[in-house]
Amino acid sequence: MTESLFFVFAAMAIVSALMVILNRNPIYSAVSLVITLFSLAGIFLLLEAYFLAVVQIIIYAGAIMVLFLFVIMLLNPGKEAKFLSPTNPRILIITLLSIAFIGMIFTLVSGTANYIGEAASSTGDLGTTRNIGLTLFTKYLLPFEIASLLLLVSLVGAVLMTKRNLR
């Protein structure tokens, strides 16, 4: 049951990710990305990361993608004027490099379980909000606070950069 669900989500994610990079229209790309993110949320659920799955949908698929769509519509760039022609040597080079990357990673990753042991038995409450919250506010309190500072800085930065007249 879990395995078949994994394959469904994974296939959805891969296909929509390919749509993201192959679509000419940025709006379609953005919508495809939303689908990818939803599928990933599903995979998170399979991995008992309940809290993160929800956060994935709210923050990524919600907030961040809305920001993307907003900018796309604001700038209205239209379709990309000129896509790389399929005969362009760059495409060939990148494809070859990608295949090499995939091949090496697949080989290296196979048998990882042999090194780190079999999957630990599930307790069923690994990624619950309660557990995440407890860890975040005890062990990771300082990084958590610093992360809030990072967000504040980026907020200020974004406002500053989009201002029309800087003085």
Binding site: L52, V55, I64, I116, K139
Partner: peptide, 26 residues
């Protein structure tokens, strides 16, 4: 994280998401 039944990996993901949000904004 699931494999090792250790929550630290998920916390990292949480921070990555924070970073992603900041990065997208800027």
């Amino acid at each position: 994280s699931r494999q090792m039944n250790n929550i630290d990996g998920q916390i990292f993901v949480f921070f990555v998401m924070t970073l992603a949000a900041a990065e997208v904004a800027v």
